[in-house]
Design a protein around this nucleic acid. Sequence first.
DNA 1: CTGCAATGTGTGATCGGTTACAGATGCAAA
DNA 2: TTTGCATCTGTAACCGATCACACATTGCAG
Lengths: 322, 322
Amino acid sequence: MANIKDVAKKANVSVATVSRVINNKGYVNHHTRSLVEAAIKELNYVPNEVARSLFRKSSKTIGIVLYDLKNEFFNEMISQMEALIFKHGYQTTICTIGDDTEREKTYLRMFKTNKIAGLIICADISPSGINELPDIPLVSLERLVKDSNPSIDCDNVMGGELAAKKLAASHCKHILQFTGPLNLACSEERSVGFLNVLADFPDVFVHSLELDFNTFTEAEISDFIVKYPEVDGVFAASDRIAAVALKCLKKAGKRIPEDVKVIGFDNISIAQMTDPTLTTISQPIHAMSELATNTLFKLINKEEIDQLHQIIPVELIEREST
Amino acid sequence: MANIKDVAKKANVSVATVSRVINNKGYVNHHTRSLVEAAIKELNYVPNEVARSLFRKSSKTIGIVLYDLKNEFFNEMISQMEALIFKHGYQTTICTIGDDTEREKTYLRMFKTNKIAGLIICADISPSGINELPDIPLVSLERLVKDSNPSIDCDNVMGGELAAKKLAASHCKHILQFTGPLNLACSEERSVGFLNVLADFPDVFVHSLELDFNTFTEAEISDFIVKYPEVDGVFAASDRIAAVALKCLKKAGKRIPEDVKVIGFDNISIAQMTDPTLTTISQPIHAMSELATNTLFKLINKEEIDQLHQIIPVELIEREST
DNA sequence: CTGCAATGTGTGATCGGTTACAGATGCAAA
DNA sequence: TTTGCATCTGTAACCGATCACACATTGCAG
């Protein structure tokens, strides 16, 4: 592959001049410029980004840190962000950390030594991981990392409230709530919003079961459901949980929505494939991804950020299950 | 951040010696080594990968090219591959190209200038894109790119055959087949295998509808289904299509599996969330991802590859829908 | 005691760019 | 005529590593 020296030689100029042409920076005589451009074309020259990154001390890549890639919700997010990152002329590198702090540490080190330009974090970083965070622009999405970094979250409390209002308005009296892990802010907030609203309805009973978003089983859900045969309303912290609950309820002989109303959370595609389709709280994935990406690039370009912590409203999408 | 010179200065040695220590290469006196190691620890030094990449003319990153990120099947693949790539000490960068050849071209150029070490392609590359492919180790997964590159595919023909045998054994006579785009080898092969087997059953009728994996609609499917009220078997080229077909059949008053047997393809998580759960052809995602990644690293390390084009057998997973 | 191999270390070129600085030219204003 | 500024271009340092090569020193066989 041709390099800048080859181009300079072919065009009979110095490498500095070639550099000026390709970066459109500084003075270059019109005629010289066309000579250089001809040489570039002829040699099919493209500048070596690695060399540029070395000098710049920053490579044009953005890292996205995730718990895993198995959640459609996060996939949708990456998809949006990758498109925007590309538009800015950057590469996207992904990294899943799961619960492996060793891996988390290694990945964060890798990002550091690879001089990535920015980081979007949609995962819980361990305390030791926080110390390893590279000193580069960083925004957190759906999971607050550090108070000093910009964050984008959906209004989880509002989501819980909307679900509660809906079930209350449908005269549900015996409600089962399937929460996510309550040590996660998002799960906790959904539950708080939900319970707060229902506290105003003294004749409504709520029973909650805490589940792991990824490893919950059908048995856990169905065992819980059989304990409460009088159930007439369900709120689940994710559509996946809701879909499984729906199935268990049907197996238990319940008709949806006549006997039991079901509300999920996320509005992923599964919500439209269940039978009946699932009423759910929709997180504005597109808006959130865009905000996260744009905020990151503002940081990178040292532009002013109007609001450090942003909370995006959610929406209740009504379908057949209520 | 400290660099190799700082370490050299602190340890009172030359940069070459430091380099020898961190790369464990060449002769280094035991005592000198510990001096250097102490300096490294004290300065919290980590080598700059960008500088290394520049010299090596290759960065430790692997690119994965996809059509998009909205398919759970491919997400599962990326997930597996990312884990393996990480184990090899490499980064993973992802790139979705959709049908945008301009974007495809830009991304491939980016990979070239960023000196990525290898490429895994799970998407259809346009003819012009083929010319832009960087001259680096490359394997194609689920989509043959060039005959000269290693490829890994599942046995789509076998998948079609298994489905056909199952439906035939269940005495289905009026079968609807929903294929993927027939210009894609994978869709075509599934259909060929399916029809080949059924050709031996003169009393079986098959009607086929070609769908796009991503943009198919419920209306398309339901319109097709109402045309054939005598339907008693369905084979879909993906679980998503099968899930929607299942729903349409139920709406049309069919009982599954009593009236109609349904078989999908992929064995993604949706297949277990439908009601009834979906019988499907399982692609060994794990084995395929592992093979693809390992083959790529064999290429990178210039090891021998035993078989250029590999075809992995599939398996029929029987659930409630048959 | 010599010679050669193994061990240990440093110098400087190199990877492929960017850019500070210096030097040259031309032209307008003083 | 001199000064000053804008335009244009090249030289060389620099980004942070690797490694070929040169040059010691040491140990051991002959």
